[in-house]
């Protein structure tokens, strides 16, 4: 503000009217984003706040909500073993799927940063899975790929391996679903790719003059320079992974034996099968707080491992 003020003071009085006119243009700016703003208020902020209210009620969407105070939260923590099961499954899922996905995205980004003739074609091809992504159709495809008599097992059989019960075994099913997420590495990959191309070439030149191997250049130049993007990807993918739903819903229905009973599935079931909207709202607020907490931890820790060229100032 002080900067603006000092600039304003330097402008002769006759020029100040022009500034006012510019301010009016700013209001026009708000007018332009009004459709988005209305959307935000009605479709996001309003449901967000009302879900907080509903979380303190018993509400079946048909009769009026009945205030029950902290009852829903109390029941979730003390009387609902499925809550803990779904938390456990989701925790494992996030811890596994997110790092693997980021590592894979980085790996592909490294490959695609090579200067080849048809590189744009390859980049498009590798981005395709992310467009098809979390859709129902792909989930159905996943089922046919990984079912006991599916494509993957018949390929394995040719190598005299398997069959593996990818989706039917309570010990494996969650990892198979994790693969579906990892497969959608495209958006992280694009960001890594952009980051890699931003790294100044002279760093690598200096490295190679000093006799650094490609391996150590990757870990000592590329990775540190990419950490801001790692941070962004990590947070975004973590938030998404906590809310993962489609694959588990379409392919396994949370089974076998609740081994893929992700939190979002539990939430959905309470809301749309049992019609316990108040209870489900409470569940969604607990998830919100968990995600906020994990995000805060990641940001807090980022000072220790994220490298900024300008020192983060």
């Amino acid at each position: 503000m002080s900067v603006t003020q000092s600039i304003l003071n330097k402008i002769p009085k006759s020029g100040r009217r022009k500034i006012k006119v510019r301010r009016n243009y700013q209001y026009a700016g708000y007018l332009y984003i009004l459709p988005w703003l209305i959307g935000l208020l009605i479709f996001q902020l309003y449901p967000f706040i009302s879900s907080l209210y509903y979380s303190f009620t018993d509400y079946n969407m048909v009769s009026a909500p009945k205030w029950v105070g902290l009852d829903n939260y109390h029941k979730i923590f003390t009387e609902d073993p499925d809550f803990y099961q779904s938390l456990k499954v989701t925790g494992i899922y996030v811890l596994l799927a997110v790092p693997v996905k980021l590592a894979f995205a980085l790996f592909v980004a490294m490959l695609l940063s090579a200067k080849l003739k048809a590189i744009n074609f390859f980049r498009t091809v590798y981005y395709l899975p992310s467009i098809l992504g979390g859709s129902v159709a792909i989930s159905v495809l996943w089922r046919f790929l990984f079912m006991k008599e599916g494509v993957v097992n018949s390929l394995l059989a040719r190598l005299h391996l398997g069959p593996v019960d990818w989706l039917g075994s309570p010990d494996i099913a969650l990892y198979t679903l994790g693969l579906l997420t990892v497969w959608q590495f495209g958006s992280s990959m694009v960001l890594f790719l952009a980051g890699i191309q931003q790294i100044p070439n002279d760093l690598y030149e200096a490295g190679s003059i000093d006799g650094a191997s490609r391996f150590s250049m990757f870990f000592r130049i590329t990775v540190p320079m990419l950490t801001p993007i790692v941070l962004f990807n990590l947070v975004m993918q973590m938030v998404n992974a906590f809310q993962e739903f489609t694959g588990a819903f379409v392919i396994t229905h949370g089974g076998p034996m609740k081994s893929t009973y992700l939190y979002a599935l539990k939430l959905y079931e309470e809301a749309f099968t049992f019609f316990k909207m108040g209870y489900a709202s409470a569940l969604s607020w607990i998830l919100f707080l968990i995600i906020m907490a994990v995000t805060a931890v990641i940001f807090k820790s980022s000072g220790g491992w994220v490298h900024y060229e300008d020192g983060g100032k």
Partner: peptide
């Protein structure tokens, strides 16, 4: 990030 979360969860629970 929190705004994003809010919108994601809001969308989810509506």
């Amino acid at each position: 990030a929190s705004l994003l979360l809010a919108s994601l969860l809001g969308g989810c629970s509506s």
